[in-house]
Structures are given as structure tokens and as C-alpha cells.
Computed example of a mutant assay.
Amino acid sequence: MLAHIAPARLPLAATIPDDVSVDAVLADLAADRVSAPAADIAGLRDVVVRAQEHGIDLSVVVLDRDPARPEQLRDLATEVGMVEGGTVLVLSPSAPGTYSDSISRVVLEGAQDHTYTGNPVQSANNFLDDITEPHLSWGLITALLVLVVVLVGGVSYVAKVRRGPSTPSVDSGDGDPGAGSSDERASVD
């Protein structure tokens, strides 16, 4: 009897929120790397300048409505980032989305967790603070651990070579392990 096989479910294709024009966002970003409501532009420009001081090419997009799915914010950030390059932060009233061609996804997602405050300028500042703080270099830590293991192995090898070849202990008796010397036999009796 054949087992029932569920139909394969394909992941949803990347989508941009319906009411957002990528071309309009890119046009807004062209002048100052900010696409946001007028009330937030000055504060977000300051965040972009501060990011540049840290060597980060940041673009910030603020939407006035939440998309149907939060993933659409990441999809929009990716679309913008593929054209503009650098790091893109997209904020909606209740969630962030990010893309970067220079910052790891792990760091971006960690920063996203601390980003949202409800205030786009404060959220962008939180994001920037998080991505610019020093992070552990797991590659460096791994390389150091490998080096320690190699050094310990090398020291162990050198110590073994200096001891010389291991030889089994030799019995000084007459070849019969149970015979022993006459003094030993007398003390047992």
C-alpha cells in the first residue's frame, strides 16, 4: 500500500508591498539616502551621516503602513539594496526589514531585534548603534582554537619522541613468571 504524499509547498515569491513603488523609493533615496515622511527626514539624514562616519553606506526607507506580511519589508530592502548597494533599513509602523552587501545577516537580524521603537528616527539610531558595536569574530575564534589544538598535538608529539620508543618491561627471573626467586618462595611458605 502506498503512503500518502502531501503536495509540495513552494515558498512564496519575494514581493514588495502593493502600495510601494520601488522606482519612487529609489528616486527619494537619490538625493540623501532617505525615503520617509517629511517629519522624519531631517533626523534620518543625521543617522545616515553618522553611519557614513562609521564607514557604513546606509539607506533608510520608512513606510506609513504595515505590509500584508512582514517579510515584504526585507524583500523591499533587498530590491533597493540590489540597485543602491550598501545597507538598507526599511521601517513600517510595526516592523523592520534589512539588507546589506557588507554586513552579515546574523548581525542585521540581531540589530533588527533591537531596532523598533515606533519612532523611525530612534529606530534607525538603535539599528546603527547595534551594527556598529564590536561583535565577536567567530572566524578568528575558530582559527585560534585550531591553533591551540595543533600546538597541543605538536607538544605531545615532541614529548613522546623525547621519551624514546616504549619497550615492554623485562622480567629478570628465569623465564618462568610464576617461579620467582628462592627467597620469595621461602617467605610464602
Rank of each mutant, 00 (worst) to 15 (best):
G154C: 13
D75Y: 15
E133V: 13
L73N: 11
P120G: 02
A124D: 09
A143Q: 08
L91N: 08
L136I: 15
T87F: 03
R74D: 01
V121T: 12
E79T: 15
I141A: 14
S123Q: 04
V149K: 05
E79N: 12
S92T: 07
A95L: 02
G85P: 06
D101V: 08
L108K: 06
P120S: 05
T142K: 12
H135K: 11
Q112M: 14
L108F: 12
A95E: 13
S137H: 13
R74L: 01
P96I: 13
R162F: 00
G81E: 00
V149Q: 05
G86Y: 11
V158P: 03
V106I: 11
V148W: 07
G154D: 13
K160N: 07
S94M: 05
D174H: 03
V170A: 07
A95Q: 11
D113C: 01
T117R: 10
V80C: 10
L145E: 07
E109D: 14
D129P: 06
V149C: 04
L89T: 08
N126L: 06
T98Y: 04
T117Q: 10
L76N: 04
V152D: 03
L76D: 00
N119V: 13
T142D: 08
P93L: 02
T132I: 11
G175W: 10
N126D: 12
L91S: 05
Y116I: 13
S102T: 15
G139S: 14
I131F: 07
D176P: 04
P93M: 02
S102Q: 12
Y116K: 00
E133Y: 13
R162G: 00
V149W: 09
H135T: 15
T142M: 09
P168W: 10
V107R: 14
D129G: 13
V88F: 11
L145F: 11
N125L: 12
I103D: 00
I141D: 00
E133R: 15
